[in-house]
């Protein structure tokens, strides 16, 4: 879907992005993560040619991006940024309908699409359609920003720290929302952030960048278990890594079948994370939890030994 082949970007003498190669498959959510100034935003913006790359090639569906007309390319790619970039002089409705109108969709189709998107992002049409961006809260504005990026149903979505300016609670709920949307829409998403928790939470593929280079890429669990070097390790949180990994694994991964003994009193849902299970054990001072399914029916149990000791299980 998106392919970067030995891409380099120089600003004058400074090298912002240094010979990186990256391939993002269809339907994949790829997160670029790193400290500020590591070239992650530059990499993102080279894909829709807001910045032109100096060397190498960037392909979209096998076609070099340079072969597209800039505007045509960008209208095919959704784009959401931290500051939302909503046009302050346009209503929410007009903002969301921007790209479809640029693509000359008929007015009623634009209107329908806007309604559909506002429903998708749980923005009430009657309440928000005629509001101006200055009348929205940060979270609402960012939802509108995402809706605008999705408006023309692009296959690719580029997101540059879209939730960076939000408070932690709003940020988490929007992350959940994005995960939910992605499960439904299967867009190809390139997402830039410096927040490692956000990255771990969302990524199908995690790409760690440092000083313009890709240091390591792979599934979040792979990186957590085998960080390539000290930089990745510290970025992943050092001693905190165990908890971060636990937050990525569901209870169902470690539970054992129901035994003959009495059922533990404390319960945990099977799609809760191991981290949540650990937290319940700490809080309730217990070593065993009963695992239940969506209908609260016990389907297995989880012991502290099993929760923490995968190797014990292997042996």
């Amino acid at each position: 879907m998106i392919e970067l082949i030995h891409v380099t970007k120089r600003f004058g003498d400074a090298v912002a992005v240094d010979d990186i190669s990256l391939s993002v498959g269809k339907g994949e959510l790829c997160v670029l993560v790193g400290t500020s100034g590591c070239g992650k935003s530059t990499t993102l913006r080279m894909i829709n040619r807001l910045i032109e790359h100096s060397d190498g090639e960037i392909h979209l569906d096998g076609q070099p991006v340079r072969e597209f007309r800039e505007e045509v390319l960008r209208r095919r790619i959704g784009y959401a940024i931290q500051s939302t970039g909503l046009f302050p002089h346009w209503t929410v409705e007009r903002n969301i309908g921007l790209v479809p109108r640029l693509l000359k969709w008929p007015a009623n189709r634009v209107r329908e699409r806007v309604e559909e998107l506002m429903a998708l992002l749980e923005l009430s049409m009657t309440e928000f359609a005629d509001k101006y961006p200055s009348q929205l809260s940060g979270g609402q504005a960012q939802r509108v920003g995402v809706a605008r990026a999705l408006a023309a149903d692009p296959e690719i979505l580029l997101m540059d720290e879209p939730f960076g300016a939000l408070d932690p609670i709003t940020r988490e709920s929007l992350q959940d929302e994005l995960a939910r949307l992605q499960a439904r829409l299967h867009k190809t998403i390139v997402f830039v952030t410096h927040d490692m928790d956000e990255a771990l939470r969302l990524a199908d593929r995690l790409v760690v960048m440092n000083q313009g280079r890709i240091v390591q890429q792979g599934h979040p669990i792979e990186l957590l278990r085998a960080p390539a070097d000290a930089f990745v390790e510290s970025l992943l949180g050092g001693e905190d890594r165990g908890l971060k990994e636990a937050a990525l694994l569901p209870v169902s991964e470690r539970m054992s079948p129901l035994g003959p003994g009495p059922l533990a009193e404390e319960r945990i849902a099977r799609d809760a994370t191991l981290r949540e299970a650990l937290s319940v054990m700490l809080w309730r001072h217990v070593e065993h939890l009963a695992v239940v399914d969506d209908d609260e029916v016990p389907i297995g149990e989880l012991s502290l030994r099993r929760l923490v000791g995968a190797r014990d299980h292997d042996a």
Binding site: R75, L86, F87, P88, V99
Partner: peptide, 15 residues
């Protein structure tokens, strides 16, 4: 003009 707005306008594919 807010640089975010200018960038978004470009990123959305406006000429």
């Amino acid at each position: 003009i807010d640089p975010g707005v200018a960038e978004a306008a470009r990123g959305m594919g406006m000429t």
